[in-house]
Design a protein around this nucleic acid. Structure first.
Lengths: 193, 193
DNA sequence: GGTGCCATGTAACGCGTTACATGATTAT
DNA sequence: ATAATCATGTAACGCGTTACATGGCACC
């Protein structure tokens, strides 16, 4: 969804072709390979947008032999862009892969939950380190927006680290009250029980 | 990836069929429709796992006419599960849809960035409210694991709210130093310029 | 006999990735 | 020349969703 809408947003500023869109998106999204968008996604998304009538392919193959396919946003495309601007983004913080992994490790006997936690902690420290380097190297005036994005990432990784500490300190308690794993969902109690 | 690995983890405890796997996963992942897995995903994933040799379909169609297809994990499946357990989960906190939206709103002139921020803030307050209700209604002893998951979600939503405040207070500054949007990536300066 | 749960799928599509493939232009 | 960049795609696959479809079993 995001890439699709970002393409609409960029085309709303000015018509572009796929290669420019890719470069512009990467620069917008923090630069330097944060959010690496592959060419395949750009071109297939443009094709879908065109088919939906949100985008138009301009007269291409003018004089030069270099094939540039320049796209323009349509009124329907602008309407969809506005709808995106004026709606909230879902917070995807449930669907936590680590939580699932930890719960399974508590139940599987094949692996030590403390080790699972420690592996994740190491990973988060590594990520935090890399991001912090990046933020400190960014020039404070020229790259204010990027710094703000990186600061968000740092805040969330730190939250995860505090969460891991909390989990570890309550692990015995969690072990005694594991998540219910139903034999099956039986809404109304069966009579033949 | 997560659902696939969770299926392996559940099958490592005991053989099951698709319908049971779905119920067990939902219960594990916080219950009550957090992380709603559709039947289609369960069955197609099981088919892929079987084709890859990580899972085996047991002798089905025994005596009863009700068709239950019970799956077992294979040694290769257990190896992959162990690899998952002993590796870290990537923090997906770059790739922020709201950040992209805000940057485009700063540049598009079609919408007020302050309004974009305020819409997102309202959404986050609503989410925070819903999750808090849920956490307070959960029975503290029986559902400790779920509470810990909900607490993580709360921490992250609160971090986002602080981040929004930070953005808003620096918005004029950000406006003066917007993210670079290259006309094109020109590594070596062109001679014909 | 109908409602609701148990149980299994298929088809089509959107998003995203990897790999493969082609060819023009520009800089050294 | 040749390397890097500009520029465009296709094919195949994984993950995930929506919609559609079928049928057995249990309860009332």
């Amino acid at each position: 969804m995001t890439v699709r809408n970002a393409i609409l947003g960029l085309l709303a500023r000015s018509p572009r072709h796929g290669y420019e869109l890719r470069a512009a998106f990467e620069a917008l999204a923090g630069g330097e390979g944060l959010w690496d968008v592959k060419p395949a996604q750009i071109y297939t998304t443009l094709a879908r947008l065109e088919e939906s009538g949100l985008v138009l392919l301009e007269n291409h193959k003018e004089k030069g032999s270099l094939e540039k396919r320049t796209y323009t946003i349509t009124p329907r495309g602008q309407a969809e862009l506005l709808a995106w601007f004026t709606s909230g983004v879902e917070a995807p913080y449930h669907r936590d892969e680590f939580y699932i992994k930890l719960m399974l490790s508590l139940v599987s006997e094949a692996v030590d939950p403390y080790q699972v936690i420690q592996v994740q902690r190491s990973r988060l420290f590594q990520d935090l380190h890399d991001i912090t380097i990046r933020r400190n190297q960014a020039h404070p005036k020229a790259a204010l927006a990027q710094i703000i994005l990186l600061e968000k990432v740092i805040m969330h990784i730190e939250a995860d680290l505090r969460w891991l500490d909390m989990i570890e300190s309550r692990l015995d308690e969690i072990r005694r009250h594991p998540p219910p794993e139903p034999e099956l969902r039986l809404r109304g109690r069966p009579k033949n029980f």
